[in-house]
Structures are given as C-alpha cells and as structure tokens.
Computed example of a mutant assay.
Amino acid sequence: MKAVITGASGGIGAAIAERLVREGTTTTLVGRNHERLTNAARRIEAAVPGADLQLEVADLELMADVRRLADRLAEEPPDVAISNAAVVAPIDAVTSEGLQRTLATNHLAPYLLFRTLAETDHPARFIVVGASPTALSRVPVDLDRLDSRDGLGPVPSFRPFAAYGRTKNMNAMFVYALARRLAGTAITVNGAHPGIIRDTGLGREARGLLKVSARILDQFRPGPEVGADTPAWLATSAEVAATTGKFFVKRKAVPTAPHTTDESRCDRLWEESARLVGLPITTR
C-alpha cells in the first residue's frame, strides 16, 4: 500500500507516517522544507527500522507547487492520501499568488490536490484532518468572500485563529462535496478531528494573548501520537473501507454544524474554490 501525507515534517503528520510505516505502508512525506522533512524521516526510521519512506518538497500555500505535486503523485497514485498541513497565519499575510495564506494552505491546497488525484480513478482513501466540529459551529464560512476578515472577534491576536477555524469548516464542507461527487467510485473521502494536540506547530506565528494561552495550554495537551490515531485508523481499518462522506472524532462518526452540511453551501464553496485554483466547476 502507498500513502501520501501532507504536513509530515513533524507533529501529527509525522506521527501518522510512523503509524503507517509500522504496518508496512510505503509512505510519502510532504513538507515545504527539505531539511525538516529529512529530519522527520530520520526520526521515523530510527523508530521503525526499514521504514519505506519517500520525500516530496512542496510549499502548499502556492497553488503552482500543489499542481506540480499532484501531477507527480498522479503518475503512481497513492492508495491513501491524507491532508494534514495547516497554518494559522496573520490575517493580512498573502502569498505571492495573491491568496490569503491560511485559506491557501488549509483549504485550497487539499481541494486542488484531491480533485487532481480523483481524476486518476485509482481506488483510494482520501482523509482530511480537520478540527473540532463543536467549536467550529460558531465560525461559519463567509461564502461571499472566503478570505473575509469580518466577524473574527474583538481580540486582534485571536482573529488569525478564528480565520483558521473557518478554513477548518471548509475542510468538512469539502469532504462532503467531494464524497458526493465520487459516490459509486472506488474513492472514499472522510474527515477527522485529531483532538487538541501539542507540538503541531500551529501556534508558530501566534501573537499576544493567543501565543501566551497556547503555551500554557500545551502543557496539558496530549502528544501527536494521540492525534494520529483516528486519521491512521481511517487510512487502514477494514471497518471503514467503504465508508465515505463522514467526519470522525475518536473513531466515531459525528455530525458537524448544519452550515457545513447544507448542499447548496457546499456547492458554492466548491465553485468559488474552483475559480480560485483554476479548475473547472463541473468535474470532480
């Protein structure tokens, strides 16, 4: 079996990779920094001698990089694709392509990657690592402007995290929309909340109260190996081999907010995302 994991230079992504290689899976680690990827591979190989690892360097905030990555992977499509990469970037941080960084990395990258891989028709499990459906119920996506800076709360230092929450709601909406379009194929699509986990790197660019509170709370949070459990289970368990269009917490399918499941809203997100990444609307 072959798997690919984005955001695999550390944290939950690297922990998922370690779980998969222990089961004999050939696993491709995707990250934007070659040195960090190499170090992650060394740690995994030390824990699992003989681990079959491959490395792919790609900056997922750049759609050009995502397209090249998707094209390379499509040459020998994976049996499992896990979108784990995520950032909490400053609200005004924009990529060289003119996209808000949080939106590009957290939503548009998996949208473009998975839509491209789906075109291969290779049997596969697609898994999107999301966030708490309970917490995210309070931050619906602004479908009129996906990078909207409005309604993100009164505390400036917490607004980047609220924007991150909106992209995590986009993840759930994308899972439902893609699963619906792939119904009847050999590709399944599911989402998973890994839990509130320390050492994910999400707070790397945090400022003010958000940075202070994150440091305090990290002392009480479980490690990446806990966060890896549900995504790795979705990738390998026979129990969910035919399951699609669901969102899981602690290996249990759970509902997400109505604003994430409404088909018309999901379709609007699909269409706007297609426009932003340059894909046709009507295909997978």
Rank of each mutant, 00 (worst) to 15 (best):
F247D: 07
R221V: 07
A186T: 13
D229M: 11
F158I: 10
V254C: 05
T236S: 10
L182E: 05
L178Q: 06
S157A: 11
R265I: 04
T261R: 14
V226Q: 14
V254Q: 08
I197W: 10
L152R: 06
S213A: 15
A162T: 14
G223K: 09
R251L: 02
V212P: 00
R268K: 14
F220V: 07
V249A: 08
A172M: 14
F161L: 15
A186F: 08
R159W: 05
R204C: 03
V226M: 11
R265N: 11
N190M: 02
G203I: 01
A274N: 10
V175C: 03
G195K: 05
A241R: 12
R207V: 13
D267R: 14
D267A: 15
T200H: 09
L143N: 04
L269E: 03
V226A: 13
A241M: 00
N171M: 06
G227F: 06
G201L: 02
G227P: 00
D142W: 02
K211F: 11
E205V: 00
T230E: 03
I196W: 13
L209Q: 12
T236L: 12
G151T: 00
R166I: 05
D150F: 11
G201T: 02
E263M: 10
K250A: 13
V249Q: 12
D199F: 08
L210S: 12
T188H: 06
A163R: 14
L146Y: 11
A186C: 03
G195E: 05
H193V: 03
R181D: 12
Q219E: 13
A235G: 01
R265L: 13
F158V: 10
G227A: 02
D218W: 13
R138I: 11
A232E: 00
R159G: 00
D267K: 12
A179S: 08
G153S: 04
T230A: 03
H259M: 01
R215D: 14
R268Q: 15
N169Q: 13
A214G: 12
L269W: 09
R149P: 02
N190I: 01
P222M: 03
E205T: 07
R145E: 15
R265E: 11
R181P: 07
T167G: 05
R207G: 05
L209Y: 13
T261G: 11
L234W: 10
K252P: 09
V226Y: 13
H259E: 03
G223L: 06
S157I: 02
P140C: 01
A163G: 07
F158A: 12
E239M: 01
G208R: 01
D218R: 13
Q219H: 15
P194Q: 06
L276Y: 10
G165P: 01
P160Q: 01
R145I: 00
T230L: 00
G165S: 14
D229C: 10
A241T: 08
A183Y: 11
E225I: 05
Q219L: 15
M173H: 04
G184E: 05
R268M: 07
V141Y: 10
S137N: 09
F220G: 10
T260Q: 15
L182D: 04
S213C: 10
E205A: 12
Q219N: 14
W233L: 00
P224E: 01
P255A: 05
G153Q: 02
T244E: 02
W270Q: 04
G203P: 03
D262R: 06
G223S: 11
A257P: 10
K250M: 06
E225K: 06
F248S: 02
E205P: 05
T185H: 09
A206K: 07
T244W: 07
P224M: 04
